[in-house]
Design a protein around this nucleic acid. Sequence first.
RNA 1: CGCGGGGUAGAGCAGUUGGCAGCUCGCCAGGCCCAUAACCUGGAGGUCGCCGGUUCAAAUCCGGCCCCCGCAACCA
Length: 475
Amino acid sequence: MAAKFYLTTTLPYVNADPHLGFAAEIVRADAIARWRRLKGDEVFFNTGTDEHGLKIYRQAAVAGQDPQAYVDAYAAKFDDLKKALDLSYNSFTRTTDARHQAAAQAFWRRCAANGDIYKKTYQVKYCVGCELEKTDSELVNGFCPLHPAKPLETINEENYFFRWSAYADKLLSFYDAHPDFIIPGHRLNEIRNFIKQGLKDFSISRLKKKMPWGVPVPDDQEQVMYVWFDALVNYISCLGWPDDQEQFRRFWPGWQVAGKDNLRQQAAMWQAMLMSAGLPNSEQLLIFGFITANGQKMSKSLGNTVDPFSLTAKYGTDAVRYYLLADLPAYEDADYTEEKFAARYMADLANGLGNLAARVAALLEKDKAVLPLAARPDSELSAGVDKALAKFQFDAALKAIWQKIAETDEYLSAQAPWKMPDPEQKKAVLAQSAQNILDIGFALRPFLPASADKIIAQYGAGEIRKGEPLFPRLP
RNA sequence: CGCGGGGUAGAGCAGUUGGCAGCUCGCCAGGCCCAUAACCUGGAGGUCGCCGGUUCAAAUCCGGCCCCCGCAACCA
C-alpha cells in the first residue's frame, strides 16, 4: 500500500505580486512533493492564497473594484506560478472559497466549544494620517513613522480572543516530545525561548462595520474573523475537513513549509489552535531563510522585489528552479543578484549539464550507435539524492548530481573516445557515459522535471541523437 | 542584560563525533580539440572576526569581546 504524504506551503497574502521568496518556498515544496511521488507515495500538495483583511479591502476600494474581483485577479496571478515554475500542486486553496470559509467557521466552533475563545474589550492605536490601526511593532517611539507629528488616537474595541496563554506548557511538552518537529533545529530553540517568555492571547476577530471583508464569526453578525482562524485553517480545509473525514485522516498530519517570518504562526499559534480543536499536530515544519536582493531585504516599499515571471521568461523555468534549489541555502538567508544567477546558469547548466548531454549525444550520433539503455532508479546516484532529500537538503542533493556530471566529463577526457581506433572500445566508453547521463536525468526529476524528461527521452531512445541544446549559452 | 542567525581565499559557501583547511565562480599556466569558445590537468591566493582557556592536537569544545543581519505578534 502506498504511503500517504501531505505537504503544504503557506498562503501568500494577495496584496502584492508573487516574488522570488515565495517562489523559492513553493519550488522547494514542489521538489519534495515530486520526490515522494516518484518514490511511490500518494501525495497531496496544497498551496493557495490568503485573500481577506483590511489591506486588501482598502486596496480594492482604491482600485475601484469589488474585493472579490480584486482578489480573483490576484489569485489567478499566483496560480500562474504553476506554469511558470512547473509546479505539481494538486490543491489551490483560496481563503474566499466557500468550502474553506465553512471549515474556518467549524474550526472556530470547536475551539469555542472547548472554552478557548472569549470576547474582550481592548485598546487599539489609530493613526489619523494613515487612517489605519497600528500595532506597537509598527510604531517608532510611540508615533507612526509616516506621521510623527500626529498623535495616535486610542480606540476601544471589543473583539474575540484565542486563549493562547493556556497552551504554553502544552506546546513546550509537545516540542520536547518531538525534537525534530522543526527543521532547522535552531528554530525549535527560538520558538521555545519565545514561549518561555509567556504567551498573550491573540485577537482573532474584527468589527464587521469597520472591516467587512472576512469570514463571518459564527453566531455573531457584528464580527468577522481576523487572519488566524481564517488563513491557517486552510491547511486542513484543503483536505476536505470537516466534511471529508476519510480523506482528512488519510493525509493529516502532514508537512508544512514556511519562511522564517512565519515561525510563530506555524509552530506555535497553529499548533495551539489544533490542540484546542482536538486535532493532531502537524508532522514537521520546514522553516526557510529569506532571500535578499543585492544585500537588501526584498520589500515592496524598497521596490526591489524580484519577479519570478520575468526571470523564468528570460532564463527558463528549470534555470530558475535550479538556482533556487542549488545555489541558495534553504535554511539560511541568502542573497540574490542577477549576476550570480547568470554565472551559475553558465557554469552549471550551459557548460555543465547541457554541454555534457550534447557532447556525448554528438559522439553517439556520428556513430549511429544504438544503446539499449535502461533507467536505473536504484543507482548509486539516486541513493545519494534520496539521502539528501530525506533530510530536505536540496543543495546537497543537487551537488551529488553535479558531482556525477563532473565525473563523466573527467572520464571522457581521460578515455578520449573520439580518437579510439577500436569501435567496440569506443562504444563501451560512450555507453558508460550515456548511462551516467541517463542516471543523471532520472535523479533530476524532482528538481528539473522538464529537463529530466528531455534527457530521459533522448538517452533512453536507443538511437541517441543530438537534438536541441538543453541550456543555451547566454548572449 | 528581549530572541535568533552569521563572521573560513577576490566573491559565494562546505567543514558530521576535535586529527594535514576544502568546494564553486573568478584569476594564471598548460592540455585537449568530441562538445554549447565548451571540457581536462596544474598553480597562485586564507592569522578560519578578536582575546584568552582546555587538549598531544581547536575552524570545531569552554569563557569573554567586536562587527553584520533578521525577528519582536499578517512581508515567503
